[in-house]
Amino acid sequence: MNYHEEISDTLQSIAQEKSGWIIDHLVDSNVLDFEPFGVLKLPTIHFELFGFSINLPITKHVIFLWLAGLIVSILFIITAKSYKKSLVPTGLANLIEMIILFIRDEIVKPTIGEKYVNTFTPFLGTVFFFILTCNLLGLLPYGATATSNISVTGALALISFIVIQFAGIKKNGIIGYFKGLIPHGVPVFLLPIMFVVEILGLFTKPFALMIRLFANMTAGHVVILALLGLIFILKTPFISPVSILFALFIYLLELLVALIQAYIFTMLSSLFIGMAIHQEH
C-alpha cells in the first residue's frame, strides 16, 4: 500500500502543479470553451419548489447531450422519411437501417426473444445511438464527452435499471418476479442470504454499466491529453512527433472504443432485460 500511496502522491503533486488541466478538460463546466475565440457562459435554472431550492445548471455536458439528441433525431427523421418513398432504403437510411437491423436481430432477438423484438428495439436502439453519438461528439475539437461524466452514465444506467425491473415485473408479476430472482433448488436455510445477494445483484448490474461506460470514455481522453501534455511538461517541441503519433493511435482506438462501449451498454441492457423476463434460465 505504501507503494500505491507513493505513486499516488507523485501523481497528485504532478496533477496539482502541471496537469490539473487534464481533469478540467474532462469534468463538466458552466462555460462552453472555444479557445482562442473566447468562452460562452451558460445559464443556470434556479427555482424554489415545495421549499427546496432546486438548481438545474445547463452545463457543457447538458449542451452536448442535447446536441447528441438533436443529431440522433435528425438522422432518424431522415431515415423514417426515406421509407415513405420506398421500402428500400438508400444512402444514410441504409446505414442507419443496417445498425437498426443489427440491434434488432443480433442483440434483442437472441437475448430477449422474438416475441418482444418490437417492444424493446426502440428503447435499446435509442440507447445505442444516443451513447454512440455522445461518445463520438467527445472526439471532435471543442467537443465534450457527456458519457465520460459519471452523472450521465449513472442516469442512463438508472433508466436501464428501471426498464429492466419494469420488464421483469410486467412479465412475471411483482411477487412472481421477486420469487423468480432466487434460483430453483436452493436449500431453505440459504434463502435469506440468496435473496439479499440477488437483490444486490439487481443493483450491481446497472452500477457496472455506469462505471464501465464512464471509465472507458474517461480513460481514453486522459491518455490523449496526457500524451499531448508531454510536449508542455517536457518543454521541448522534439517530443511532439511521438506525442502526436501516440495520441493519433489512441484517438483511433477511441473511435473503436466509442462504438464498442455503445454496443456493450446496449447488449448488456438487453441481456439484463432478457434475464428479468425469462427468469427460469
Binding site: 481533469i23 438545474l56 459519471i150 452523472s151 450521465v152 442516469a155
Partner: peptide, 18 residues
C-alpha cells in the same frame, strides 16, 4: 468538480433528454 462528482442537475437533464 472532481471526476467522480455526482451532479443531480446533470442526472435530471440526462433523464429528461433521454
Amino acid at each position: 468538480g472532481g471526476l467522480l462528482d455526482v451532479n443531480p442537475g446533470l442526472i435530471f437533464w440526462t433523464v429528461i433528454t433521454f
